[in-house]
Amino acid sequence: MSPTPREYNKMSEKAAPNSKLWKNVGMAFLVGGLICTIGQGILSWTQWLGLSQEEGGAVTSIALIFLSALLTGLNRYDDLAKHAGAGTLVPITGFANSMVSPALEFKREGLILGVGAKMFSIAGPVILYGISASVLYGLIIALFH
């Protein structure tokens, strides 16, 4: 009399508590927006210093990545992310955290196969498919324009 996998899947979906969607979305909006606002602060400052748009953008990224790496090293980024969810995942700080956290975590496995290899375990696919998409785009414009 045991249920079929399909019936059981329904049972288990019913038994699972719902995540608090609106609270989570609100937190993601707030924290994500705030990180972007900090980014805007740095960007505006670089423009005030007279840097070009491109240079300013690079400095902004570097500064945010530095802050993310620092908070990750101090074991604070994950505490923030627990509440912020996508708010700390989607900004460039989340990308930095995805590289810094495995590097730190797998330190015990050595500098080569630990830090070196594991650093890309989460961010690797992001870089790979981002670059691949850009190459595809480049081919299209090079061949058809």
């Binding site: 909006f29 927006g33 606002t37 805007q40 969810g85 900004p91």
Partner: peptide, 13 residues
């Protein structure tokens, strides 16, 4: 910046 950045994150959530 806050609004657009926040919205992109909210979609991720």
């Amino acid at each position: 910046a806050f609004l657009v950045g926040g919205l992109l994150c909210a979609i991720g959530q």
